[in-house]
Design a protein around this nucleic acid. Structure first.
Length: 281
DNA sequence: TGCCAGGCCAAAT
DNA sequence: ATTTGGCATGGC
């Protein structure tokens, strides 16, 4: 059995670990004991919340950075538009943060997310880790397999992980990254529009997935991914009864209306909408 | 059973 | 610039 590790405290004001991990931005954390077990880069981490602090087996500075405990939440909330949908989402998600994910892991999981429910994205992520990821210590969890590892597989290997038509996209993208054809580190330093354009060169990456990578892995808190849930929220709350509102019109509206922390607003609206749907049944 | 899920892509308008 | 059909798989 594992050796019991000392839990170290991390100050965490204005933070909800539960909301953050349940919000569909990261998929591999699982409930364990009083908290959650997961992996940050190549380190196994256990973390639980006790009021205004976290207790973790991880390196405190690494945990604080991963969960973005430095984001100015009061300033972010002050930037949210004042309307009923936004107020309800803020009330429900208070303390949720946009975390800083490793870029490749984020990119790959969102390539597999196309036309999939959150539960199944998590399932695919788990199979890929267990089948092709490096095991982090005896009996430990698995790291997400890097692009070099996936690049040498065949499409059928990935189809066997229930990826369906996404298998070819993940494989092509892994090969492009492994070959240095697209450089994720370079993208992190580019202006938003150029970074998005560069990400869209990858197989299975369109505007929505590119925005997820920009938001969840590149610290672009303006990036506003529009999926089927958010599109529904936008149409029902901001374009009620109007016809012929095109995708382009929606995109322009979000940039203007939600502003500097649009990505945060988007994630709050997304998590609230999904949670409301699941509570109904 | 049928419909929907954190879409993308190529082709046609 | 926008619309349309095809693509795999699993949950409800």
């Amino acid at each position: 059995m594992t050796v019991p590790l000392a839990l170290r405290p991390v100050a965490a004001q204005e933070f909800s670990l539960a909301a953050t991990l349940a919000s569909g931005q990261v998929f591999h954390w699982s409930p364990q004991g009083q908290g959650y077990a997961g992996v940050i880069d190549e380190s196994p981490v256990y973390v639980e919340q006790q009021g205004d602090r976290l207790l973790t087996t991880g390196e405190p500075a690494v945990v604080a950075r991963y969960f973005a405990l430095d984001h100015p939440l009061a300033e972010i909330y002050a930037s949210f538009p004042d309307d009923p949908a936004m107020r309800a989402a803020l009330e429900y998600c208070r303390g949720m943060r946009i975390i800083r994910q490793p870029a490749w892991e984020c990119l790959a999981t969102f390539i597999t997310s196309s036309m999939k429910q959150v539960a199944h994205i998590a399932q695919i992520s788990r199979v890929l880790r267990e089948r092709y990821g490096r095991r982090l210590g005896p009996g430990g969890p698995y790291a997400y397999p890097g692009p070099e590892r996936l690049a040498v597989l065949r499409e059928d290997d990935l189809r066997a992980c229930a990826l369906g038509y996404r298998a070819g996209n993940l494989l092509k993208t892994a090969r492009m990254i492994a070959a240095g054809e697209v450089d994720l580190d370079a993208i992190r330093a580019m202006p938003d529009d150029l970074a998005r354009e560069e990400l869209c060169r990858l197989a299975g990456v369109g505007e929505k997935v590119a925005n997820c990578v920009l938001l969840f892995a590149c610290e672009r808190v303006r990036a506003f991914p529009i999926d089927v849930w958010i599109e529904r929220v936008l149409r029902e709350n901001y374009f009620k009864g109007k016809r012929k509102v095109t995708a382009g019109r929606l995109r322009d509206f979000t940039r203007e209306y939600f502003g500097e922390y649009g990505g945060y607003a988007q994630q709050y609206l997304f998590h609230h909408a999904r949670s409301a749907r699941h509570r109904k049944s």
